[in-house]
Structure formats: C-alpha cells, structure tokens
Design a protein around this nucleic acid. Structure first.
Lengths: 147, 147
DNA sequence: TATCTTGTAATAATTCTTCTTACAAGATTA
DNA sequence: TAATCTTGTAAGAAGAATTATTACAAGATA
C-alpha cells in the first residue's frame, strides 16, 4: 500500500515551476516532460494545486506560476490538496466485524481514536517540511553536479 | 489509499484470543466468525502473528494462545508483522522522472530523507500503543454495555 | 482410526490506481 | 479576427493490488 504518486508529482511540479520560472514558459507539457508522465495527469494535479491556491494558471507567455512563495507551502498542504488519504482514514478497517460477538462489536470503537492519533502524527510531520527546503536542496544538488 | 485491513484484523484477533482464552477453544473458524472474514484470511494473519512470536497455534483443546502478554505487543509489532508498507516506503514515488531535466534527476534524492522521516513519525506513534490498552478498553466497553 | 484444524496453493472477484485518447472551450498573439 | 496553443474534463482502457474463496494435503487430537 502506498500513498498516491500524485503527491510526489505535485511536489516535483512545484519545484519545477520555481526552478524554471525565469527561463521558460512553464506549461503542462513542459512539466509532463520533466515528470515523465502524461500531460493529463499533470493537468489534473495542476487543477488541484490551483484549487488549493498554490499556483496560478495562464495560457499566455507567463505560463504556470506560483501563487504564493514555497516557504509558505508545506508538504501537508500538498498532501491535503491531493486527497492522499480517504475520508475513512489511513487504516483500512475490516468491513464486517460480527456484532453478536462482544469483541467484534466494540473493537472498532476501541481502535479508532488511536489510529487517528497515528495518522495525525504523520500529518504533523508533513507540516514541518516546506517546499522551499526541498526546492533549495534541489538547487544545491544541481549546482553540485557541475563539479 | 489505505493500509491493509490485515492490520486491524490482526489486532481484532489478538483481542479475541485474550478475551476468550478461558471460555472457548479459539480456532481460526471461531476467529473468522468474530472478524467477519473468510477463515483463510484469518489463518494467513495467524501465520504472520506466529512467525512474529506473538501467538502459539495448537490444533488441540488449547487452541490458539498468546505467546507473550499483550502489554509486550505494540501496534508497531503488528504493523511490522503484517508488512503493511512495502519496501519502497509509504509514499509512492512517480516512476519516470526525466533524467535530462535537472529537477527531474534530483527531486527524488531531495525528497527521500524527508518522506522517510514522515513515515518514521507514524511508526513511532504506533510503538507507543500497546495491545493491552486496546484489549482493556474493549473489555471496559463490553462491561459498559451491561447497563 | 475418525475427526478436526491448520497451512498453502491456485484462482477469482473486486476495487484502486494510473495511463491514454479525444475533444470542447478559453486564451493568446500575430 | 483567425490561427494556434493550452487547459479542463469526460470516458474508457490497462494494469496493479487487495481481498475473498475453493480445494486439499498434512498434522494433531481424542
């Protein structure tokens, strides 16, 4: 089980917009080229990022741009925008516990709050990481390559 | 995306073994009845729990028993035994970032350590919760029902 | 020895995710 | 204004992963 690749694609896209904004007109096709995915999946991710207020989309020369600085976007914001985890939560509860068994009809309730806290721990960690860090590290890696 | 229901099934099973061990002979069919799943999935989960040293399996009157007290089993132990998350990690990285794009060939490296720390935060939280807590709360809920 | 239970393979069914094609609608620029 | 480019979205195909089920051999028990 893994969290949808839309999440890492979204991060990749944001890093690209930041990196290329003053050299190229950034379009969905351009991004799809860097990501290595079909332009349509990129456009869908773009749509989610736009709805979340992270990017602006123009068909003109300005292309796709950041709507706010990467320092104000955390991994959690992206995770949230991509709907990485369903309404039901990170953990899949088995569907048919037997209500005529005392354990069966109570175990769900007993686990729920604890599993929520586990999910929350992950989400809190995501909030501590900004896209700015990632973009900056990426830039450093690229500069490092020159040697 | 959700973590396999084998995880909650395993917790349910452990709670059942604890709850019923002095009233019933606990078998895979009995457990399957409480869980509401096919006996084969229960047996597979049982196999994993046995390999992890949490339960003992007998075909006789003793049935399935705990191999160590629930206070010494954490949700992480169960999570680990069920192989809830693949080798590749919790986050699915998109497969084909373009190596001829500077961002494309560096973004993976840049994200990896951070995503690992996020996954680790979740796993640490799992380590803080014991099966004993859950079994105890379940017992309390059951007693509460009597009113 | 008859019965019950586990272990496991094989397979089917279902659900999710990802990819792809196609095209309408909006924006841009010459 | 017309030609071109880009986005937004629907529809569907393909693929992967998860879960359920049948079947049966082998081991344990009484």
């Amino acid at each position: 089980m893994q969290i949808t690749s839309k999440f890492t694609i979204a991060v990749h896209i944001l890093a690209c917009i930041e990196y290329f904004h003053d050299q190229e007109t950034v379009t969905s096709s351009f991004l799809a080229g860097s990501v290595g995915a079909n332009p349509v999946v990129v456009r869908n991710v773009m749509g989610d990022l736009k709805n979340a207020g992270m990017i602006r989309i123009s068909q003109g020369k300005s292309g796709i741009t950041l709507a706010r600085p990467l320092s104000e976007i955390t991994l959690y914001d992206v995770y949230d925008a991509m709907d990485c985890v369903s309404e039901a939560g990170l953990f899949h509860f088995h569907e048919n516990p037997n209500a005529s068994c005392p354990v069966g009809r109570n175990i769900h309730k007993t686990m729920d709050s604890r599993l929520e806290s586990v999910q929350k721990a992950m989400e809190e960690e995501l909030k501590h990481i900004t896209l700015a860090e990632i973009a900056e590290d990426t830039r450093k890696e690229i500069l490092g390559e020159a040697k």
